[in-house]
Structures are given as structure tokens and as C-alpha cells.
């Protein structure tokens, strides 16, 4: 690691003002991705603000029926919380599909959203990476890109966002609550992460001086009809090649509302609201799901090693929708 100064803060205001005033300052909460990247000098904070003393650990019901997840609640606390397990089992499953039990005990909800890509080139200082070092080029573009994006990428970056939790949050249409110098605001999940465009060094629309304080879940949790399906290279403890989060509101076999997000395919959890609408009022059946899967992959563009992802994404989408609607083969 490069040398840095360290300060434990006891208030949100203090954290935010430190973020603003101290050069190259970063928040540390769980640390499970930040420290990893600091060790390989990919991230080089000059100042670390330890926010673990802040009171942001609660998971509680919100007025109007939603749920608030504290930014510092651990991924494990969140996944196993009775309110989450009971009302948002999709979120619970997605979190448990990620990382390992040890990492989930330490990783926080806020940190999970802010984890960086797992692109091998991002992690390797001896290679070109626009996300790590703007203007240096993208080695993945013509390199080994099996794990990379098929949607929403740019010539500057084809990395994917690695979170499982974020995929479920996108399908659930959660909002991220953040506090900055100008006060608090909430950001819809759809707008939280961003596409790489020509500045892939920026992962999200969170401002540099903003601190995530929590996540708001809307009342509808799709606890009756949901699925989180993750396809990966081994049975556990690996990142998604493709993952799908599905929440359905159904009446009989008719779909009233569908929320679908794809992971492992883009720089952010991928949603196509227009495609979700295709299912509304339709019967839950394979053909309708295929229509949605085609619509979701519209505009997909693969690279040398990840062509399979387009097919995989479509087939995983269909399967997840079948699971969510309790359809057999």
C-alpha cells in the first residue's frame, strides 16, 4: 500500500467534510475491495475515512411499507434479516450468491454498491486500463475478454460491475440514499451506476463528496414470484458470468408487472424497462419469456472471448423467468 492518513469519524457531517477537504480521501467501511486494490496499488488513497463508528447499521421498516437498509449493515446481516428474507427474498438470494460467508460478514451494503470491476487488466498495473489510468487504453478490448461486457460498453472500457446485490436492487427499483455537502438525496438504482462512455474511471453517479447512508426498498418485494439465477465458472465463490434478477407480480398465470435485471453483462446492472412492459398482461410462458430475452439483448455486442454471453444471457433470462413464475420445463 501507499502511505495514507487515517481518521475514524463519528458523524456523517464530519465524514462528508473530510471527503470534500482532504485530497484523495476515500471512505472505508468493510474494506473488502478497497484494501485489496490498495495492496496492488490500483487505488492509492491519501486519506482514509473510517465510517464504521457511524450509526448506519439499522434495517428498519419505512413509512408506506418499504424497507430501509443501513449503509453499514453487513451483507450477511441484510441477507439474513427476517424482513429481507420474508419480503425481499430476491435480495437475500442475490446477496448470498455473492462472495463468501466471511466476506459477506465484513462487506457493507454501501460498499457492495461501490465495489470496482474485477477486470484482470484493471487489477494489473502493467497493462493499459482507462478505468485505472484514464487515456491509457483498454487492454481487454483486444485481450482476454471472456468475462467482459456485451451491453452498454464503449471503446474505452468493456468492464462489468461485479455485484450480485446491485442486480437485485436494480430489479427491485431500490433507491440509494446519499449525503453530501448540499444535504441528502436519493438516487434510483437505474441511475446510480453509469456506463463507461469516455470516462470509465467514474463508476457511479455518486459525487466524490457524497457518502451513501442507506438503501431504500420500495414496498413491493415480489416475494411470491422471484428468482435470482447466477451462472459462474464454479459452484460458489466466483463472480457471475451472467446473472438474472426477476420479480413478477402475477394473477393466476398472468403477469401484471415484471422487473428484470441482468448482471455480469455491463458496467451496471442492466435493465430494459421497455422490454419488461412486453410481459405485462401476458401469460407466463416460454414464448413470451423468449420475447423478453430477445428484447433485453437488443444491441448487444460481444468480443472475441465472450460471444457465449449473449446466448447465455438470453437462456438464463428465460430460465429465471420460468423459475419466478413456477413454470416447469
Amino acid at each position: 500500500m501507499k502511505p495514507f492518513s487515517y481518521q475514524k469519524v463519528m458523524g456523517i457531517t464530519e465524514a462528508v467534510s473530510d471527503l470534500k477537504e482532504k485530497n484523495q480521501s476515500y471512505i472505508i467501511a468493510g474494506g473488502t475491495n478497497l484494501l485489496d486494490l490498495m495492496k496492488v496499488h490500483v487505488m492509492q488513497p491519501q486519506h482514509l475515512i473510517d465510517i464504521n463508528g457511524l450509526k448506519l447499521h439499522d434495517i428498519s421498516e419505512r413509512d408506506g411499507g418499504g424497507l430501509h437498509l443501513g449503509a453499514l449493515a453487513s451483507n450477511a446481516q441484510t441477507a439474513y434479516h427476517p424482513l429481507v428474507e420474508g419480503r425481499y427474498p430476491l435480495l437475500s438470494q442475490a446477496i448470498l450468491a455473492g462472495a463468501s460467508a466471511q466476506l459477506r460478514n465484513k462487506a457493507t451494503n454501501g460498499g457492495n454498491l461501490l465495489q470496482r470491476t474485477r477486470c484482470s487488466y484493471f487489477y494489473d498495473n502493467s497493462t493499459s486500463c482507462n478505468k485505472r489510468e484514464p487515456e491509457s487504453g483498454c487492454a481487454a478490448l483486444h485481450g482476454y475478454n471472456r468475462d467482459h461486457a456485451i451491453l452498454g460498453h464503449s471503446e474505452h472500457c468493456i468492464a462489468t460491475h461485479p455485484s450480485d446485490m446491485a442486480v437485485a436492487l436494480a430489479a427491485l427499483e431500490a433507491r440509494v440514499v446519499a449525503t453530501g455537502p448540499d444535504g441528502a438525496r436519493s438516487i434510483p438504482m437505474a441511475d446510480f451506476h453509469r456506463l463507461p462512455s469516455n470516462n470509465p474511471q467514474v463508476d457511479s453517479n455518486l459525487e466524490a463528496e457524497e457518502l451513501i447512508t442507506g438503501i431504500q426498498l420500495p414496498p413491493e418485494g415480489f416475494a411470491e414470484h422471484y428468482a435470482y439465477l447466477k451462472v459462474r465458472d464454479r459452484a460458489s465463490y466466483s463472480f457471475a458470468l451472467v446473472s438474472v434478477a426477476v420479480g413478477l407480480r402475477m394473477e393466476g398465470n398472468t403477469i401484471l408487472k415484471a422487473r428484470v435485471a441482468l448482471g455480469g453483462v455491463a458496467h451496471k446492472p442492466w435493465r430494459v424497462p421497455g422490454a419488461e412492459e412486453l410481459l405485462e398482461g401476458k401469460e407466463a410462458d416460454r414464448e413470451n419469456f423468449k420475447v423478453l430475452s430477445e428484447a433485453y439483448l437488443t444491441g448487444s455486442e460481444a468480443f472475441k472471448h465472450n460471444k457465449f454471453k449473449i446466448k447465455l444471457a438470453k437462456q438464463t433470462l428465460v430460465r429465471a423467468l420460468m423459475q419466478a413464475s413456477n413454470l416447469k420445463l
Binding site: 487515517y6 472505508i28 474494506g31 484494501l35 463468501s100 466471511q102 466476506l103 465484513k106
Partner: peptide
């Protein structure tokens, strides 16, 4: 009481 990876946390925390 909780299992964690001790390599990914700072002692000072």
C-alpha cells in the same frame, strides 16, 4: 464472534 478474512481489514479499524 464472526468469521472474517483478516487479510482484508486494517488492524487499526
Amino acid at each position: 464472534g464472526q468469521r472474517i478474512n483478516s487479510c482484508l481489514t486494517l488492524a487499526v479499524m
